[in-house]
Design a protein around this nucleic acid. Sequence first.
DNA 1: CGCCTACCTACCCG
DNA 2: ACGGGTAGGTAGG
Length: 337
Amino acid sequence: MSMVLKGCLNIWRDCLLFVIIRMNNWYKLICNNCELQLSGTLNGGQSFRWSKHLEDNQECWIGVFKKRVWILKQNETEILYKVFETKCGFEKKEIEERNELYNNILKDYFQLNLSLREYYQQWSEADPIFKKAAQQFYGIRILNQDVTENIFSFICSSNNNISRISSMVNKLAKFYGDKICEINGETYYSFPDVENLTQPGVEAKLRENGFGYRAKYITKSAEMIKEKGGEMWLEKLKGMDYEEAKESLMTLTGIGAKVADCICLMSLGHLGALPVDTHVYQIAAKFYMPHIRNKKTVTKKMYDEIGDHFRKLYGPLAGWAHTVLFCADLKKFQGEL
DNA sequence: CGCCTACCTACCCG
DNA sequence: ACGGGTAGGTAGG
């Protein structure tokens, strides 16, 4: 009986500890802001799960990944953050230990082991247009995102705009993910597993909710992944080289060259993958490859030609470099420049 | 291969 | 007011 009581007290203490930590303290991760610019990185069309959020009158970003809700802000030298998990009586770990665990997750997500300074310098020397974009868009990082979330998010992206893509991805989480927590009246959900998207009735529900023809792509691709081995297939995908991974992804319905490259670049670590969409085509035609101007559609040959041009210009991390250009173009387009 | 068209929906712009 | 154009494309002919 006293054992049970003691257990309860421990859980209660952990809960209290958790509440105190999460309400009053920000975890810290040392990171110079020239190595990571949160706004451009989180709001640049890579992930559709982040939104701006004011806390103590400071700009923060709130988003979900790894089944946790994260609130991030930064100053010159640090990332300051809070984390919210489903369970409050989690493993008994001291604050420092938890800070280290979370820091490692963030380092992995933002790929902080890769130092941007030397690459930005290299890309600036190779290309004056990059150099100009880099002045404002320093610290733009490729996020290392979850493959499943990436696959279904970018299936939603076809012939679509960012605000509607975001609303679709959030609906997928709300309908088929797990509830994590509630913050300021807003409920946050993890992104669903493939298995959850293969339940009967998903396509109809998504259609009712404005997904359009993408509803079928989502359910069909989920079923195809399940048939190929589900989680096993996804793990195998992670072990493939760029060409093989891209080819495998393109066997799924709703995934063509562009979407496959997004997934390769942003969740499989193939940093030379270079998604060519209308923006990139416009940039390429305007500044780099005048001979492709006035083409109606991007043919496969042209797609590869544009990618190869940038890979030759920027080298093996061309996908990363191009994201900086893309980000600059996107902001200009959104009137934020 | 290259080119064409249909596909859902919401929002912008004239 | 209302209709065409378009938004980080893809599949099927």
